[in-house]
């Protein structure tokens, strides 16, 4: 079985593919506009000192998301993909 985790769980330095975006309304739009659509590759770059927000590499730019928001994004980590294929 493939493991799906929420984006805030993706450890620093790891990448994954967005599967589902469960945010709605304005938040959803904002995430989509940054290029976070199902199929997008995302890499966790760093956490802020308090652990929230977390910065991700999304389509060539570094964008910080709050944990509230990144919780709503499901992601398939690459390491898992490799193990299961």
């Amino acid at each position: 079985m493939l493991m799906i985790i929420s984006l805030d769980q993706l450890p620093v330095g790891e990448s994954g593919i967005v599967t589902v975006i469960d945010a709605h309304g304005l938040t959803r739009r904002r995430l989509l506009d940054l290029g976070l659509v199902p199929g997008t590759v995302v890499k966790t770059i760093r956490k802020s000192p308090a652990g929230d927000p977390i910065a991700y590499l999304i389509r060539g730019s570094i964008v910080a998301l709050r944990v509230n928001d990144s919780k709503q994004i499901s992601i398939k980590p690459f390491s898992e993909v490799a193990i299961n294929e």
């Binding site: 945010a23 570094i62 964008v63 509230n68």
Partner: peptide
Amino acid sequence: SSSFTLELP
């Protein structure tokens, strides 16, 4: 507080 994204240029 509402949702927010921040780009680090």
